[in-house]
């Protein structure tokens, strides 16, 4: 524990969006607690969860904002898109209506976030294969057309849940690496740990050694 002076080198802000009842909160719960929440109450406004995970050898803290899917909260939840580095757009593979609404969610996401925001499409409830209403290929095609990452996951079994968050984080990290994401700009949704105001690109090895700066 004492070896690393800091717990993580970046913070990525995520937002989870999608229709009511597609399992957004369950995905978050599965991701942060590794448990399935059977009777998940409707989210009021927004809820919040964090987890530190390792992406390409870097410890990254994910700060995840889980929004309410109910229409009446739209006005409130829209305010949470700003400054998100990643957006998880969730639909329910057993309910076509939730898939059909994706374009409106996508419009919101595109309008309210910055162009670098990584959006990943997640077809939740993949465990309910028998009740499938949206095929994998169809959603895959939608994702490709719109330049989204895509995964089918199940908050119940935990399948692909970790990957969903990880894939998005990898993409964001890659954006940082190739410089398309400017870390110095405020509200890029990514915050870099080392406090030294070093300019330009970051080096591959963050050196968060700060204790010695007696003044």
């Amino acid at each position: 524990m004492a070896t690393a002076p800091y717990n993580y080198s970046y913070i990525f802000k995520y937002i989870i969006i999608g229709d009511m009842g597609v399992g957004k909160s369950c995905l978050l719960h599965q991701f942060t607690e590794k448990k399935f929440m059977a009777d998940c109450p409707h989210t009021i406004g927004v809820e919040f969860g964090t987890r530190i995970m390792e992406v390409s050898g870097q410890k990254i803290k994910l700060q995840i904002w889980d929004t309410a899917g109910q229409e009446r909260f739209r006005a409130v939840t829209r305010s949470y898109y700003r400054g998100a580095a990643g957006a998880l757009m969730v639909y329910d593979i057993t309910r076509r209506s939730t898939y059909n609404h994706l374009s409106s969610w996508l419009t919101d996401a595109r309008n309210l976030t910055n162009p670098n925001t990584v959006i990943i499409l997640i077809g939740n409830k993949a465990d309910l294969e028998a009740q499938r209403d949206v095929t994998y290929d169809e959603a895959k095609q939608f994702a490709e057309e719109n330049g989204l990452l895509f995964l089918e996951a199940s908050a119940k079994t935990g399948e692909n849940v970790e990957d969903a968050f990880l894939e998005a984080a990898k993409k964001i990290y890659q954006n940082i690496q190739d410089g398309s994401l400017d870390l110095n700009a405020a509200e890029s949704g990514v915050q870099h740990k080392p406090s030294a105001p070093q300019g330009g690109r970051l080096t591959s090895e963050p050196t968060p050694q700060r204790e010695g700066c007696g003044c």
């Binding site: 898109y81 700003r82 400054g83 309210l112 976030t113 910055n114 700009a185 405020a186 509200e187």
Partner: peptide
């Protein structure tokens, strides 16, 4: 900063850009 400067390249836009829409 969030009120007046917003994100990189203007996205997300500064919050004050929406001051005409009270709810937003």
């Amino acid at each position: 900063d969030a009120l007046t400067r917003g994100g990189p390249g203007g996205t997300p836009r500064p919050i004050e850009m929406h001051s005409h829409d009270p709810m937003r």
